[in-house]
C-alpha cells in the first residue's frame, strides 16, 4: 500500500518525520487510528481532511503535546524529545488569548526561549533575530504594537515570525491561512516556499482544497486513518478526495 510513497521518500533522500502505528484517543475514542506516515525532507506538505479528521491532533501528537496510546514518532531517526531544536510549531491562532499584555516583538522573542533553556534571559542576539524575523514577515513597523491591536492576518504573521526565529528544520503549522486577508495569505505562502527552497520541511494543516495544487508539492489525506500520502501531482485526485470526504468530491485538479 505504501510502496509508492516509500520510493519517493528514498528518491528525496532523508526522512524528516516518521510516524509509526500512531493511535491517539480522546476520552477513549480513537481520533487517529494506526497512522503510518513518512515525510521526506524538503517537502511543503498539506494535511487535508474533513472536520474532526484529526489533522490538528496529528500535529500535536507528533510534537508531544498529546500523548498517543500507541505508536511512535521520530524526527530524523531519533525520538522527538531529543530533536526539539529541529522543530518549530505555529499553533492555531485561536488557541491563545490575544488580549494578553505583550507586544508583537515580545511574542516573536518567545521563539528563542527554547534554545535559551531554563532561567537564561534573551539578550541582544535574540532581539536581533526576532527583529529580522519580523522584517521577513513584513511586520517590523508593528514591533511595539500590543498584540490585540493587530488584525487577524497580522497576528498570524507574528506567529509565523515566532516560528522562524526558532531556525528549525521542520515547521508544523496549524491552519495558518484561517481567517487571514489575501495579502497575508500571499505573504505567508511566499515565506513557506522560501523555506522549502532552503531545504526545510514544512507541514501545514490546510482547509482550502482549491489551493492545494497551487501551494503545495506534497499532500496527506487524513480521516481518522491515513487515506493517502505522496506528491500532489500523483495523488491529488477525485478518487482520494472522495475516499477522504466520504461524498463524491469533484475538484478541478490542475496537473
Amino acid at each position: 500500500m505504501d510502496t509508492h510513497t516509500d520510493e519517493h521518500a528514498l528518491n528525496k533522500g532523508n526522512l524528516a518525520v516518521k510516524v509509526d502505528d500512531l493511535t491517539v484517543a480522546y476520552n477513549y475514542k480513537p481520533v487517529l487510528w494506526d497512522i503510518d506516515l513518512e515525510i521526506p525532507e524538503g517537502v511543503l506538505m498539506a494535511i487535508v481532511g474533513p472536520n474532526g479528521a484529526g489533522k490538528s491532533t496529528l500535529i500535536k501528537a507528533i510534537l508531544g503535546i498529546l500523548k498517543p496510546i500507541a505508536g511512535s514518532v521520530s524526527i530524523y531517526g531519533k525520538p522527538y524529545h531529543k530533536q526539539r531544536s529541529l522543530v518549530a510549531y505555529v499553533p492555531q491562532k485561536g488557541s491563545v488569548d490575544w488580549d494578553f499584555p505583550t507586544t508583537a516583538l515580545d511574542v516573536v522573542m518567545m521563539g528563542t526561549y527554547g534554545s535559551l533553556g531554563w532561567i537564561k534571559r534573551p539578550g541582544v542576539n535574540e532581539k536581533k533575530a526576532a527583529l529580522e524575523a519580523l522584517e521577513k514577515v513584513g511586520m517590523l513597523a508593528f514591533k511595539s504594537r500590543q498584540i490585540s491591536q493587530l488584525s487577524g492576518g497580522q497576528q498570524q504573521r507574528i506567529f509565523l515570525a515566532r516560528a522562524l526565529v526558532q531556525e528549525a528544520s521542520i515547521y508544523f503549522m496549524d491552519e495558518p491561512f484561517q481567517g487571514v486577508d489575501a495579502t497575508t495569505e500571499i505573504a505567508i505562502i511566499n515565506i513557506l516556499k522560501e523555506l522549502r527552497k532552503a531545504g526545510k520541511t514544512v507541514v501545514v494543516v490546510h482547509h482550502d482544497l482549491q489551493t492545494v495544487p497551487e501551494y503545495f508539492d506534497w499532500v496527506t489525506f487524513l480521516n481518522v486513518k491515513k487515506i493517502a500520502t505522496g506528491p500532489v501531482m500523483d495523488i491529488y485526485n477525485d478518487d482520494n478526495l472522495t475516499k477522504t470526504y466520504g461524498i463524491n468530491y469533484k475538484v478541478s485538479v490542475q496537473k
Binding site: 500535536k60 508531544g64 503535546i65 526539539r84 522543530v87 510549531y89 491563545v96 494578553f100 527554547g114
Partner: peptide, 17 residues
C-alpha cells in the same frame, strides 16, 4: 520568561521542551 510563556501559550511552551 517561563511564566510569561506558559501564561500566553501553554501548548507552545511544551513544544519548546
Amino acid at each position: 520568561k517561563e511564566f510569561k510563556l506558559l501564561l500566553f501559550d501553554a501548548d507552545y511552551t511544551k513544544t519548546l521542551g
